[in-house]
Simulated scan of single mutants.
Amino acid sequence: MTSPSHLSPPHGARAHLLRTERGDFAVVDMPVAAGVEPRGTALLLPGFTGSKEDFRLMQGPLAERGYRTVAVDGRGQFESDGPADDESAYEQPELARDVLAQAEAVGAPVHLLGHSLGGQIARAAVLLDHRPFRSLTLMSSGPAQISVSQQQRVKLLRDSLAVMTMADVWEAMQAMGPPEEVGGPARGIGGPDLLRRRWLGNKPAQLFATGRQLCTEPDRVAELAAVPLPFHVLSGARDDTWPVPLLDDMAVRLDAHRTVVEGAEHSPNADRPLPTARAIADFWDRA
């Protein structure tokens, strides 16, 4: 499998299937840049309706800093298979166990980074077993459920999925506004054709289950704070999904390193990839 996404991976990276004890997952695997001393490996988890391509603009800069990065499509997400109708396959504990298997397949211990929904799945994985991880970075991912306005958008999306085809829902979602505002595809990466293809690649049951998780996630910050790992809370300067002051407070509760990327919103990996990658690599260097 060379480039399943129809978007060439970053120069030097390889798109392939990562084989794990819990199945195969589509990944973009970027090795450390030639001539650079390796400093570690990181697993990157995308957000709701997102995909591994959301990290495309960061992977090269991170490779230059000595980090191999493996960006993953989760179960039932874009090019990773999963059941179309069985929502139980996408309950958070199941997705968390997938992450543990991915870490082992990549070569634990690894740095773990999750964007938006991916951050909450990453948190669940760390709470199940922190040993495969060297650190946890929560990118634009808050302590509990998403904001009321975003819950309303997700509910509308789920109601639409119940009565419309995936293609019709995509058209309706475009009329609602930028999909990244509910943690969806990052602006511009791959262009509208790829964004539509990866939406159509999502399994409906996965969207139902993960959309529900976003709207009902409890606050587990106190549990996470008891885990002996270095934490990093990174966000843009503006975020409608979890207000920035809420992320500031979460960082204090976790005794976490805090980064605010100026000029970025819910997807700093797309809005300002270079300063975002720099901040992440600086944290990994210290961790």
Rank of each mutant, 00 (worst) to 15 (best):
M164P: 02
M164V: 02
M166A: 08
A167T: 05
D168W: 04
D168T: 10
V169Y: 00
V169G: 03
W170K: 00
A172F: 10
A172C: 05
M173W: 00
P178S: 14
E181R: 14
V182L: 06
G183M: 04
G184T: 11
P192G: 08
D193R: 14
D193V: 12
D193T: 15
R197E: 12
R197W: 09
W199Q: 03
W199R: 01
N202Y: 07
A205P: 00
F208H: 12
T210E: 08
G211K: 05
L214M: 15
E217C: 14
E217Q: 15
P218M: 12
P218C: 11
R220S: 04
R220A: 12
E223Y: 06
L224Q: 07
P228N: 04
F231L: 07
F231E: 01
F231Q: 03
H232D: 07
H232F: 09
H232T: 06
V233A: 05
S235E: 05
S235W: 03
G236T: 03
A237T: 07
D239Q: 05
D240M: 11
T241L: 14
P243M: 11
V244S: 01
P245W: 06
L246Y: 08
L246D: 12
L247P: 01
D248K: 09
D248P: 10
D249M: 14
D249E: 12
R253W: 03
R253A: 08
R253M: 02
L254N: 04
T259H: 08
H266M: 09
H266Q: 13
P268K: 05
N269P: 01
A270F: 02
D271H: 06
R272I: 01
L274C: 07
T276Y: 04
T276V: 02
A277E: 05
A277D: 07
R278W: 05
W284P: 07
W284N: 05
D285R: 14
